[in-house]
Design a protein around this nucleic acid. Sequence first.
DNA 1: CGCATGGTTCGATCCTCATCGAAGCATTCC
DNA 2: GGAATGCTTCGATGAGGATCGAACCATGCG
Lengths: 224, 224
Amino acid sequence: MREGPDIARIASLVGDPARANMLNALMGGTALTASELALEAGVSLPTASSHLSKLMEGGLLTLASQGRHRYYGLASAQVAGMIEAIIGVAEAVGPKRVRPGPRDAAMRVARVCYDHLAGEQAVAMLDRLFDRKLLLREDNEIRLAPSGASHFTALGIDIHAKARRPVCRACLDWSVRRSHLAGTLGAAILDKIIAEKWARREKDSRAVVFSPKGRQEFERMFLA
Amino acid sequence: MREGPDIARIASLVGDPARANMLNALMGGTALTASELALEAGVSLPTASSHLSKLMEGGLLTLASQGRHRYYGLASAQVAGMIEAIIGVAEAVGPKRVRPGPRDAAMRVARVCYDHLAGEQAVAMLDRLFDRKLLLREDNEIRLAPSGASHFTALGIDIHAKARRPVCRACLDWSVRRSHLAGTLGAAILDKIIAEKWARREKDSRAVVFSPKGRQEFERMFLA
DNA sequence: CGCATGGTTCGATCCTCATCGAAGCATTCC
DNA sequence: GGAATGCTTCGATGAGGATCGAACCATGCG
């Protein structure tokens, strides 16, 4: 009964929610580590690792080891194209969009992504930082502008707090499907938001909820 | 954690072997009945029915009721395109082609498809019947030529044995991915092959195994 | 060297879902 | 109407696989 290509095998790899989330997160083109993918998928590290082995074995991912980090990325543009095609069908047949619960709504606005902020707020912030020339786009990379370095330092944000990681990195946003800011700067900004008590993390969730005053402060500093 | 389109849902629909086989069978563009799809997928009718409900609910199929027959077809070209994309990836990552067992090899050569013959033999036969102008292509349909009618009657093949079904129909071949002959004529030819003992059906399989002498007879009559 | 951190493997648990037989509908034929 | 055919629903069974905690490797840091 089996014929040529085993399409069920490939499709079932994408057919698990956790794996689908990982693949979706990788659609931005940026390779991610197992920990990051575990957080994005909302599963534990062992579970994520198991999924990643399967995706590797299925030929959907490539792996680049750098020191003790292992960066997973999509194997090819063909794989990305397949996922796009599936997304297209899912969008076409799924106008039965599930009513987003309050939790989900909060997540869409702002949530933690690994160690930095994600969601509409984060995407808007990155846009503004570009507008204000505090950050610069270079190909697919993000660089800190000279004016930006002094700016963030003046705000009390220590950019080099956690060295040995890139200062700026783009990270594709789930809900908005556009990039937000990762890297040590992204992490430092999230740290400041929490330290200043502008927002608190929702328990057992990745949602980040701003207080009215905190939101004002945040918008004044990053969205102005 | 859920965002817009539920890609895992769609992918998992394709990710079951039985459903994948059904979808693959429908890639020829011909709508098929539940029974035919059950045979193609190698599952029982209840199982097939359950799968078809799921595919319908997922929006991948359309249903056209004609009398007591229910014809299932792919919902859209977009769905077909998605399946093509998945097939492409499966072919690209799967040069680890499983060694075809003897059973599989036999299936590729000749097997039963519903009530008619499929496989390399069947595809070759249809080609020859066109060459000899016993059948005529008309758009996507197949018609019995006048010379064909008398020809088959002379061979002792009763074309009208099971009336109320089209005499000729194209059916996409799994292993060869080209059409073979279905319809009452296709069924009558298979009946003759079995009746003349040119071949026997493999137990618990769809494979059709020709005897050396039977193959000679068959080739003389249909592949000459 | 020992410690910390990023990842994987192992083992046990649990749950979803594919499967089929039997029974039930629906439609058509006689 | 009654019988036959095509298909679906129901119920019970079983297997695959997703999940996580704990233990185990590997790499880099002091």
